[in-house]
Amino acid sequence: MAGIPTVLITTDKESSQQQRPPRAINPEGFTWGHSLGTAGNKDLQMAVLRTALRQFEELHMPGTVRTLAFEGYKP
């Protein structure tokens, strides 16, 4: 099986880290149900999505979850 490249956006770093995903980002401070931010905040959603997809082209230590800060999140 060749496999498919994946990237995870997680709001639960601890649980996700235990599974050692190949690529994962954890938007800092985001809570469950807000993976890409909040309703109507397209800029924030796009920033999170672009960052997640960039992991396919960046060096990412497999099995780790990267916590990254994004501006404009107001839960």
Binding site: P5, T11, S35
Partner: peptide, 18 residues
């Protein structure tokens, strides 16, 4: 699900959990 994805024309997957 992984088998279905592999058999599709998808190159990469974005995973979200909520």
């Amino acid at each position: 699900v992984a088998k279905e994805v592999e058999r599709s024309s998808v190159d990469a997957v974005l995973l979200t959990a909520g």
